[in-house]
Amino acid sequence: MKAAVINQYGQVGDVVTVTEVPTPAVGPRDVLIEARAAGVNPVDHLIVKGFMSAGPLAQPLVIGSEVAGLVSAVGAEVTDLSVGDEVFARVDPRVGGAFAEYVAVDRSLVAAKPQKLSFEEAASLPLVGLTAWQALTEQSQVGPGTRVLVHGGAGGVGSVAVQLAKHLGAEVVATAGGDGVDLVRKLGADQVVDYRAEQFDEVLGGFDVVFDTVGGATQDRSFRVLKPGGTLVSIVPIADAEAKKAEWNVEARAFMMRPHGEQLTHLASLVASGELQPLLETTYPLDDTVEALQKVERGGARGKTVLRIPA
């Protein structure tokens, strides 16, 4: 099968190649997915560079972390999926393998693809959807009456977080720039601050939860807009977190999303009910994986980048 692989860690343009590799073996609890699309995420180029690794590569690594496609085969212990079913999944990050024509995924990480989504749209949802859901429901307790600030509201994670926070009953404020401002309003945000025109911490305050998808100075300034006892949740590490928690009398939590098939099934139900729509920006063919990764690496996206993997 054709797949995007690395044989060593390094810069995307130096080490990523699309080549022929063996089709993955199917374990007893696995689902073999004939891929139609794969989402591209910042974590993918970090993996390529070796930032997520404990040591050198022992063998070629098929990269990629989320996939949508058709069930091609199932392991002996999988009884609730059949060949031909349309599915999507966030793969086990310890295994990878989504940038390929076939992907073997543990059944517990797989969900039925929402019928109203294309394969490309479905492949754009698992990582950002699970990240936003876990940030709002596990790392914080967003619900009716909660006031939430989402940074990077036009990005992959932020655009989903805005929609999910509204679904959970929160008042949602988001930051975005340029044409992203109108986009985030259309996603349901009650207020959008254009970070290019205003400093959010000079015009906002009194939040129960801040969800930070940006880091850096944005993360540092976010402590100023939290209520006492509020919570900063970030997908970017928080420097001196304990000191900042004490200084501002708040909670501060950085986390990494974990794959979860049942939660993915719930997100699919929100797509079906019209409460959630993934934001797809750009697609590339599998042969152009390097270009897709480099686009994501540059940042500034309005939604997700996805690889097309035709049969």
Rank of each mutant, 00 (worst) to 15 (best):
M1W: 04
A3E: 00
A3N: 03
V5Q: 01
I6K: 03
Y9S: 10
Q11H: 13
G13L: 10
V15L: 11
T17D: 06
T17K: 15
V18K: 06
E20H: 10
E20I: 06
V21L: 08
T23L: 05
G27I: 05
G27C: 07
G27T: 08
A38R: 01
G39M: 04
H45F: 15
H45N: 12
I47G: 01
V48S: 07
K49Q: 15
G50D: 08
Q59K: 15
V62P: 00
A68R: 00
A68H: 02
L70A: 09
L70D: 11
L70K: 13
G75P: 05
G75M: 09
V83W: 09
R90F: 13
V91T: 11
V91R: 00
P93G: 08
V95K: 15
A98W: 02
F99W: 14
V105A: 03
R107L: 05
S108I: 09
S108Q: 15
L109P: 00
A112F: 08
K113V: 04
K116G: 10
K116Q: 15
L117E: 01
E120N: 12
A122T: 04
A122W: 01
T131S: 11
A132T: 02
Q134K: 11
T137W: 04
Q139L: 09
S140A: 15
Q141C: 08
G143Y: 04
G152H: 00
G156C: 07
G156M: 03
V157D: 03
S159G: 07
S159V: 01
Q163C: 06
E171Q: 14
A176C: 11
A176S: 14
L183H: 06
R185G: 13
G188R: 02
A189G: 04
D190N: 13
Q191C: 05
D194T: 09
Y195P: 00
D201H: 14
L204M: 11
G205H: 11
G206S: 10
F207K: 00
F211M: 14
T213V: 09
T213I: 03
G215A: 12
Q219E: 14
D220Q: 15
R221V: 03
R221C: 02
K227M: 09
G229D: 10
G229H: 10
L232D: 00
V233D: 02
V233S: 02
I235F: 02
I238W: 01
A241D: 10
A243R: 14
W248V: 00
W248S: 07
N249L: 12
F255K: 13
M256H: 11
M256E: 10
M257W: 00
E262P: 06
L264H: 03
H266M: 11
S269P: 02
L270Y: 02
V271N: 00
A272W: 06
L276M: 07
L279I: 07
T282K: 12
D288R: 15
T289G: 06
Q294S: 11
L307I: 07
R308C: 08
